[in-house]
Amino acid sequence: MTEASRGYAVALRRKALPFAGAAGFLLLWELFCRIYQVRPVLLPPPSLIFGELAQSPLWFAQQTAYTVGITLAGFMVAAILGVLFAVVVTEWKVLDRLLFPLFVALNSVPKVAIAPLCIIWFGTGAEPKIAIAFLIAVFAVVIDTILGLRSVPPDILDLAHTLRGSRWKVLTRIKLFCALPHLFAGLKVAMSLALVGAIVGEFVSSQRGLGYVILSAQGMFDTPRVFAAIAILAVLGVVLIELLDFVERLALPWQHITGRATH
């Protein structure tokens, strides 16, 4: 084997490893169900779940698209408002004292308890679900962005001071960049939470989406369908996080350079 093809094989093996893990898990599950003859209403084997998905792929795709839409909308609003709030709070000390404790207090209220209120306020369309996804996701964005904005090394702040830069320049050239790695850590948590929020919203009131699928199938004891929706959610979570990883690599090219020049 040449050096290049060996490197390729190693890369391939690394990429394939997570799939091997998932496949092994499914295999054990299938065997367990068959050997102990578990009733599908309690725990359907993976083959039955895949069969359920294969029966009406288009319908599942539509429900998934709806949930993804809610999740991404809630996530985007959380990302934008979260970053804005973090900037405002770190730039103005007064606002930090004034607003931050209130923010923490509001966040301590269980969001699931607010969900019915959202229905009263926003009706039964997509808006209340987006609102719930936003409420659940925003805290992670705010906390990590504030941490990031405050993580500028003191030397660099001194440098900025001696260069007599305006606050706007310090924010846009220095602080925001320092915050980016923390921000992305927060965004990944926020993405998972936005998905949870979307499902919660659909539980409370919906005629569409994966949350609705789970709730309605459960009402008819259609356990394979419940599991089919859960399987989609699991894959969805992974895909959305991978997507963010990809965006992060694009947004922070300086973090992913290998190789150093020498003197």
Binding site: P153, D155, D158, T162, R173
Partner: peptide, 18 residues
């Protein structure tokens, strides 16, 4: 505040990674 036309160098170079 910092005087005009001041240059400053630090022990850790304080370069901006990004």
């Amino acid at each position: 505040g910092p005087p005009e036309r001041l240059g400053m160098a630090f022990q850790r170079d304080a370069l901006l990674d990004w």
